[in-house]
Design a protein around this nucleic acid. Structure first.
Length: 369
DNA sequence: CAAGCGTGGCG
DNA sequence: TCGCCAAGCTT
C-alpha cells in the first residue's frame, strides 16, 4: 500500500489543499525566521501547543535573537523555562545557539549534518527546521506524523521502536511533493493534531478518508501500534521547610540540584528519600533518620516541628509521595552563611531562582501566591 | 535499544 | 480517579 504511487499522490495533494484552508494561526508561523522556528520546535517536544504558547511569547520577548540567548545568564534561561518541564532542553538550546555563534557566525546552518550536530537537535528537530524554515525536502517525523502515516498506510510496526521512525522517514521522503516541504511537513503534523487524533479521530472531516487503509480496515482506533510504557516507580520523600533565625527570619533554606540527572541545576527545598519500609509518620525513628541525613549534609542540627502538607508529583518515570515538615535550624552560629549549594530564600526572591513545579506549589501553599 | 528526563490536560 | 498522553533527545 505504502508503495502505491497513485495513492501517495492522492494523499499528498489532498493534504496540502486541506492545510492551506485549515491551518491554525500560531505565533511561530508568523515568519520563517529559523531561530523562531527552532525555539518553537524545542518547546513543542513532548509538550502541547496550548501549554507552549505563553512560554513562547515570553521567551521570544526576553531572548529575541540568537545573540540575546547566547549572551544571557543560564539561570535566566532556566527561569524562563520554569514549569515547562524537560529542563535539559533549555540548557541544551542555549549551548546550541552558542555553538551557532562560534561555528557559523551566528547564522543557523541549513545543512543536515551541521544542524543535526547542534546540542538538543535530534532527527525530528533537524528535519523540522530544515523543512519549515528552509523548505528543504527532509522528513520531520514526530508522534503526529507516525500516527497519521500508520493509519493511512496501515503500518503495524511499533512506533516506540527507533527503527520504525526510519521507515516513516523513508516514506515521507517519497511523499513530499517538489518544493512543498515546509507546508507538507506542517500539514502532516497539523492533520494529526486537529483531525487524526489519538482517541477519537475525526475521520468524517478528514481530507484523505477515502483512501485511508487503516480506516477502510476498521483499524483506525487500534493504530498506531504502541508498546505500553512502564509505570513510574514510587518514592517516599521527606521535604524540609527550614525557617531561618535572626537575620534570616522569614527566609527558608533552598538548595540547587546537581548539573546532571533529574531536574538538573534547578532549585528546591531540601528533601530526603526514605528507605523502603520506613513510613513517614512524625515519630522518633522518623525524626532521628531525618536528623542524621540532614547532619551528614549540612553539619547544622535541625528541630523538626509539625508536618505542613502532603504532596505527590508524577514524573515520567518516578512518582514522588512527599511529606513536608516545618523545621528550624537549631544553631544560630551559621545562619547567614551560604554553604555548598544551599542558600536562604525570602518570599519576594523567588524570581531569582528556577524551581520545579512541585516546589513552587509547596512554597505557594506556605507563603501564598 | 531501553531508560532517563516534566508537566498539565483530558476522557 | 488515573492512565495516556504531546511537535523527542541523550546516553
Amino acid at each position: 500500500m505504502a508503495g502505491d504511487k497513485d495513492n501517495q499522490l492522492f494523499f499528498s495533494s489532498r493534504l496540502l489543499e486541506w492545510f492551506a484552508q485549515y491551518q491554525r494561526s500560531l505565533p511561530w508561523r508568523e515568519n520563517k525566521d529559523p531561530y523562531r522556528i527552532w525555539v518553537s520546535e524545542i518547546m513543542l517536544q513532548q509538550t502541547r501547543v496550548d501549554t507552549v504558547i505563553p512560554y513562547y511569547h515570553r521567551f521570544m520577548e526576553k531572548f529575541p535573537s540568537i545573540d540575546a540567548l547566547a549572551d544571557a545568564p543560564e539561570e535566566e534561561v532556566l527561569k524562563a523555562w520554569e514549569g515547562l518541564g524537560y529542563y535539559s532542553r533549555a540548557r541544551n538550546l542555549q549551548t546550541a545557539v552558542r555553538e551557532v555563534k562560534e561555528l557559523y557566525g551566528g547564522v543557523v546552518p541549513d545543512q543536515p549534518n551541521e544542524i543535526s550536530s547542534l546540542r538538543g537537535v535530534g532527527p525530528y528537530t533537524a528535519g523540522a527546521i530544515l523543512s519549515i524554515a528552509f523548505n528543504k525536502p527532509e522528513p520531520a517525523v514526530d508522534g503526529n506524523v507516525m500516527r497519521v502515516l500508520s493509519r493511512f498506510f496501515l503500518i503495524e510496526e511499533d512506533i516506540m521502536k527507533p527503527a520504525t521512525r526510519k521507515v516513516m522517514e523513508a516514506l515521507v521522503r517519497e511523499l513530499i511533493p517538489q518544493g512543498t516541504a515546509s507546508d507538507f511537513n506542517q500539514a502532516l503534523m497539523e492533520l494529526g493534531a486537529l483531525v487524526c487524533t489519538p482517541k477519537s479521530p475525526g475521520c468524517l472531516t478528514c481530507p484523505v478518508m477515502e483512501q485511508c487503509a487503516g480506516r477502510i480496515a476498521g483499524q483506525e482506533l487500534v493504530l498506531p501500534i504502541k508498546k505500553k510504557a512502564k509505570p513510574p516507580r514510587d518514592e517516599y520523600r521527606i521535604a524540609l521547610l527550614i525557617e531561618g533565625n535572626g537575620d534570616n527570619r522569614g527566609r527558608i533554606r533552598i538548595r540547587q540540584r546537581p548539573e546532571d540527572g533529574l531536574l538538573a541545576k534547578m532549585w528546591e527545598l531540601p528533601h530526603i528519600l526514605l528507605p523502603a519500609g520506613m513510613s513517614y509518620d512524625n515519630n522518633e525513628e522518623n525524626r532521628q533518620f531525618i536528623g542524621e541525613q540532614r547532619l551528614a549534609e549540612s553539619q547544622n542540627p535541625l528541630v523538626i516541628m509539625e508536618p505542613l502538607m502532603n504532596i505527590d508529583h508524577v514524573f515520567s518515570h518516578i512518582h514522588w509521595f512527599m511529606r513536608v515538615y516545618r523545621c528550624r535550624e537549631e544553631s544560630v552560629e551559621l545562619p547567614s552563611a551560604d554553604y555548598g549549594d544551599y542558600t536562604w530564600l525570602a518570599a519576594g526572591e523567588r524570581e531569582r531562582y528556577a524551581f520545579p513545579n512541585v516546589f513552587v506549589r509547596i512554597m505557594e501553599a506556605y507563603w501564598g501566591k
